[in-house]
């Protein structure tokens, strides 16, 4: 049976939004060829979740449900996925390009001795072959790639790029044979950064601050605007290197690559390494006092002005709109 197998990532029993996006894109591509979408869920106590995946176009859902799989382990998860691949014999395996998905994809591809197309922003059929587009060289070029002779080909899809769309089916749920989990790898603890804080890699809206903020205390302005927008807080490397905010917030070449619907850059000049992380955002706003700042070249909307005046005013305006 050919088809597209989608790894559905869950944490604490919640499916990640990016996995719904991957399912939706798989469905769109599969429909064009009349082939099925098959999902696979790995974890502990995740069986109940499996049956809900029919809503997202999965015709069949494989489940690896074992206490030892409660935490992500590259080898154990790759083993579970490989066994789902054995059952489904898909043409492609899709994963969301999250921390887990990106990592697992490499491990899985090597296990299956096939290729991987990582962090793609578009996928299409070229005859019966899947072709993908991925930003390379910090987004300064776009490569069109395919998996050569790989069957299946493993593809990771950049979060927030592909629309999530329901497509109701009744899904048949099937258990995978138990994975023999090896020792030598154990997740001791999962540390959350700060309760209630959204991660930039997953956020729909990001408000970022740079050196223009002048000091750590002024991130409060960014946080305030982020709060009214329901956004995550991002930062330039200059702000991170100055110790104003944790590296987890850094956007760019040596930080996170993000694709939110809305990216608001405040006091960020727009160095190429920063653009590398955010230029695929749908709408880019720049707030900067220097009209010559390179960030304005990629911005859809730019406000030339002092961020210390513009941000609070914007926060106020958004608050008004939202009430």
């Amino acid at each position: 049976m050919a088809g597209i197998l989608v790894f559905v990532e869950q944490r604490d029993g919640h499916v990640r939004k990016a996995s719904f996006e991957a399912l939706s894109e798989a469905k769109r591509l599969a429909q064009g060829k009349g082939i099925p979408v098959v999902a696979v869920v790995v974890g502990s106590g995740v069986r109940g979740l499996a049956s809900t995946l029919g809503d997202w176009g999965a015709e069949k859902v494989f489940v690896a449900d074992q206490p030892e799989l409660a935490h992500y382990s590259p080898q154990a998860y790759a083993q579970a996925l490989a066994s789902a691949v054995g059952e489904a014999q898909p043409q492609a395996v899709f994963l969301a390009a999250t921390a887990m998905g990106r990592d697992l994809a490499g491990r899985l591809a090597a296990k299956l001795k096939v290729g991987c197309l990582p962090d793609v922003t578009a996928v299409r059929w070229d005859g019966d072959t899947l072709q993908a587009v991925r930003p390379v060289y910090s987004g300064k070029a776009l490569a069109t790639v395919d998996g050569g002779k790989s069957v299946p080909v493993v593809v990771t899809l950049r979060p927030n790029v592909f629309p999530a769309q329901k497509s109701p089916h009744t899904a048949e749920v099937m258990a995978l044979p138990p994975v023999a989990v090896r020792g030598g790898y154990k997740v001791k603890e999962v540390v959350s950064l700060q309760a209630g804080e959204l991660d930039v890699a997953e956020a729909d809206i990001i408000v970022s601050g740079g050196r223009g903020l002048r000091g750590p205390e002024n991130f409060a302005l960014i946080r305030e605007l982020a709060k009214v927008l329901g956004a995550a807080v991002g930062a330039s490397r200059a702000a991170v290197d100055a110790g104003w905010i944790d590296h987890a917030h850094q956007v760019g070449q040596t930080g996170k690559v993000v694709s939110p619907t809305l990216y608001i850059a405040c006091g960020i000049s727009g160095a190429i390494q920063h653009l590398a992380g955010m230029s695929s955002s749908k709408v880019i706003v720049a707030i900067n006092k220097d009209p010559e700042a390179p960030i304005f070249k990629v911005a859809d909307y730019g406000v030339v002005g002092d961020l210390f005046q513009v941000i609070p005013a914007l926060t106020e305006e958004v608050r008004k709109l939202k009430t």
Binding site: C116, A141, T144, G147, S150, K297, D306
Partner: peptide
């Protein structure tokens, strides 16, 4: 290229100029 081929490489389409609002 047996497991991943670069079929083509292109520069991204140039972005059209955005709207600038003067807030000075």
């Amino acid at each position: 290229g047996a497991t991943c081929r670069w079929v083509s490489l292109a520069l991204p389409p140039a972005k059209s100029a955005g709207k600038i609002i003067h807030g000075e």
